[in-house]
Simulated assay, not measured.
Amino acid sequence: MMRFCAINTLNQSKVLFQPLLQKQITSKLKSICNSHNIIARHYAIKLKDEDNKLERIYYGPLTPQIKGVKVFSLSSSMAGLLAQPIIIREAATIGSTSLLVAICSVVGFFTFITPILLHVITKKYVTEIHYDPETSTYKATTINFFLARKQLEFKTDDVQVPDIPGMFTTMNAKGTPLFIEARHFSDPWHYAKIMGYDKPMDFKLGEQETSDSEKK
C-alpha cells in the first residue's frame, strides 16, 4: 500500500513538474537563439556597412581567365600526384632507367613547376581595387597560390613607382610589386593619384659631382 502511494505521488509530481521544466528549457533555448540571431545580425550589418563604405574603382579584366587557368593547373597537378605512383610502377616494369627518369621528369614538371611558374607570373596581377573615402586608403586584391583572395591596404604615401619597371610590375605598395592598367580604372584620377602624377614633377636630370681639384 505504501509502495502504491509512493508511485502515485511520483507520477503526480512528474505530471506537475514536467511541463514546468519543458517551459524553462524552451524559454532558455529561445533566449539563446534570440541572442545568437542578434549577434549574427549585428555583425552582418557591420560587415555590410564596411562593404558599402568601400568603392570599387578598378577591376582587372583578366581575372576570370587567371582563375580558370589556375584551377586547371591545380587540378592537373592533383591528378598528376595521384597518378604518379601508377606511372612509376608501370615504367619500372619496362626496366629502362633512362625512360623512368624521363617520365618522372615530365610528370614532375607539369605537376610542380607549371603551377609555381603560373603563380609567379599572376601573383602581381591586381583583380580589384577598392577605395575608402573616409580614410583615403586603397585596398588591392590579388589571388594567392590556392586561389584565395589576398588583400593589401595602402595609401598613396606607401606607393613607390620604380624608375625601370620589372616584369609585370607597375608599382610597389608597401614593398609588394603590383600590376595595374590605367584604362581599367573607373576614374582616371585615382590612377594618377596612386602613381603620383598629381605631385610636382622633378625635372632634375642628375647632380654633377665636382672634386676639390675641379673647384680650384
Rank of each mutant, 00 (worst) to 15 (best):
T9I: 15
F154C: 02
P61L: 12
I87K: 04
Q22D: 14
Q65E: 07
P19T: 14
G60S: 07
Q160N: 06
K199E: 09
G68M: 07
I113E: 01
H119S: 11
G68V: 07
T114S: 06
D132Y: 13
Y197K: 10
L81P: 02
I94F: 15
K215A: 03
P64E: 07
L117W: 06
R89M: 08
E128C: 08
M1P: 05
Y138D: 04
V120E: 07
T169Y: 00
K28Y: 12
D198K: 11
P61M: 07
V69M: 11
D163N: 06
K30P: 01
V106A: 15
K174C: 06
P133V: 11
H42C: 15
M195Y: 04
H119G: 07
A140S: 07
Q84I: 15
S35C: 08
Y138E: 04
E153K: 09
E134R: 09
K124N: 12
Y125Q: 10
D163Q: 08
S73Y: 01
V159Q: 00
F179W: 07
T142Y: 02
P200T: 08
V161T: 14
G60M: 03
I103H: 06
K67W: 12
L74V: 01
L152Y: 00
L21Q: 06
L82H: 06
T97Q: 06
K46G: 11
K150V: 10
T127W: 02
S211D: 13
T114I: 14
H130I: 14
Q84N: 08
W189C: 08
D157F: 03
I86C: 13
R56F: 00
K14I: 14
E181T: 07
H130W: 12
K70L: 10
S73T: 09
D187Y: 04
I180W: 00
E55C: 03
F185T: 06
